[in-house]
Amino acid sequence: MAATNFGELATAFATLLVVVEPLGLAPIFLAATVGQSRAARSGIASRACLYAFCILTGAALGGEALLRAIGITIPAFRIAGGLLLFAIASEMVLGVRIGRDSDTAAKAVGENGGQHIAAFPLAIPLMAGPGAITATLLIAGEAHGDPARLVGLIGAILAVILICWAVCRLATRVEQLVGASASIVMEKLIGVLLASLAVQYVMDGARSIFV
């Protein structure tokens, strides 16, 4: 049982890590916080990660109940969620996601002078966007309300968010270390992995309905 729980925890962590893609935050975080002091950037990173953790934890704890309340079955959500994740993966493979997220960050800074960038666009949609929320709901659905499995999911969420926090705090070094070319290649590889995961979710949902 312990091995199974560890395997599920590892799967949840890997899934969220692929969807959130923390390394891709570095250049966007730097662009969104340009002109800010080191202390201000630290505060923004901490608040953004706190907001994202609360959003994803809320989805993990209350998502399945919400789906039941509005009459959506887990198999149907697996198919819909898989299709959404596949669309996000396609954007990553085609190189659309980085440019779009950078434009979103620049627009947010321009509109509010950087006052709320911890919430938008850093927490939403970069860390806790539709893809991450969907993945969290899908994984929570597999737990079937088991407290131990939900705690494991929340632990996986916390681990991914802590990685996001570390990337934001070390954004300059991360950007220099990874480089633009390597970042593009990594995003495309991660996109392929996410597309495969999305197809698996669709297949699992279809199997639950028709078998």
Rank of each mutant, 00 (worst) to 15 (best):
L16E: 07
L16R: 06
L16Y: 10
L16Q: 08
L16N: 02
L16D: 05
L16P: 08
L16I: 10
L17A: 12
L17K: 12
L17M: 12
L17W: 11
L17V: 03
L17G: 06
L17I: 01
V18K: 09
V18A: 13
V18I: 12
V19I: 13
V19Y: 07
V19H: 09
V19R: 00
V19N: 02
V19P: 05
V19W: 06
V20R: 02
V20M: 00
V20G: 02
V20D: 01
E21C: 08
E21R: 13
E21A: 14
E21H: 13
E21W: 04
P22K: 07
P22G: 02
G24W: 00
G24E: 10
G24P: 00
L25H: 07
L25W: 01
L25P: 02
A26E: 09
P27V: 14
P27L: 14
P27G: 04
P27S: 12
P27H: 11
P27K: 03
P27F: 14
P27I: 13
P27A: 15
P27M: 11
P27Y: 12
I28E: 06
I28M: 09
F29Y: 07
F29D: 02
F29I: 04
F29R: 03
F29L: 08
F29T: 01
F29N: 05
L30T: 10
L30H: 11
A31T: 11
A31N: 03
A31Y: 00
A31R: 12
A32G: 07
A32I: 05
A32M: 01
A32Y: 06
A32H: 05
A32Q: 03
T33I: 00
T33S: 15
T33L: 05
T33C: 08
T33E: 09
T33R: 02
T33M: 02
V34S: 10
V34R: 05
V34G: 09
V34C: 00
V34W: 01
V34Q: 12
G35H: 00
G35N: 06
G35L: 04
G35K: 05
G35P: 04
G35F: 06
G35W: 01
Q36H: 14
Q36Y: 14
Q36D: 14
S37W: 05
S37R: 13
S37P: 11
R38M: 13
R38W: 10
R38Y: 09
R38S: 15
R38A: 15
R38V: 13
R38P: 07
R38Q: 13
R38T: 14
R38D: 13
A39H: 09
A39M: 08
A39F: 11
A39C: 07
A39S: 15
A39Q: 13
A40Y: 03
A40N: 12
A40L: 07
A40Q: 15
A40T: 15
R41Y: 00
R41V: 02
R41K: 13
S42P: 00
S42G: 15
G43T: 10
G43N: 10
G43Y: 01
G43F: 06
I44Y: 03
I44V: 14
I44L: 04
I44K: 08
A45N: 02
A45P: 05
A45F: 04
A45D: 01
A45I: 07
A45M: 10
A45R: 05
A45Q: 03
